[in-house]
């Protein structure tokens, strides 16, 4: 029998079936209101809907950079989970965000994250935030994530 903790494909299948759960169990992700829209091996996509409470510049009505930090950080973590053969928790070691252009007011933000290299102890990820396509990017992120070796028994694996 396949097990989502030890088998990558069954874990990805389970995450796809429970896409909404992947953010619902993360309180701060729920507060931001973004939703995961697609999951592939080592990749994850999400949508951050516009909301008045996320604005960082009241004059321009633009979403705060910190919201993009949360979105890309969280999505990178998810890309890590789908890249690993066995499930392990990951913790962000560092994250660098470059803001290419302001998000447009009252518009949703799309995001994509990729885990492009994995070692026993570290996962390397990059991510993009944009309105329509990655050609016109709002922000990019690059980060290293520490892979927690201990896997608490009975812990949720999403």
């Amino acid at each position: 029998m396949t097990n989502a903790l030890t088998d990558q494909d069954s874990r990805i299948a389970m995450m796809r079936e429970n896409m909404a759960m992947t953010t619902e169990i993360v309180p701060w992700a729920r507060a931001m209101g973004f939703q995961v829209t697609r999951i592939e091996k080592g990749h994850a996509w999400a949508t951050q809907p516009f909301s008045d409470g996320l604005v960082g510049d009241p004059e321009a009505g633009v979403i705060h950079g910190g919201v993009i930090t949360t979105l890309l950080d969280n999505l990178c973590g998810m890309a890590c989970s789908t890249a690993m053969q066995e499930f392990h928790f990951v913790a962000t070691l560092d994250l660098r965000i470059d803001y290419m252009r302001s998000a447009e007011p009252h518009r949703d933000i799309q995001a994509e994250a990729e885990c492009y290299h994995l070692t026993r102890s570290v996962a390397f990820c990059r991510a993009w935030a944009y309105h329509e396509t990655r050609d016109k990017v709002i922000a990019t992120a690059q980060g290293a994530f520490a892979i927690n070796q201990a896997r608490p028994a009975g812990s949720p694996m999403l």
Partner: peptide, 8 residues
């Protein structure tokens, strides 16, 4: 705490 909350 969420890394994104700390970052913000």
């Amino acid at each position: 705490l969420h890394g994104g909350a700390i970052g913000t």
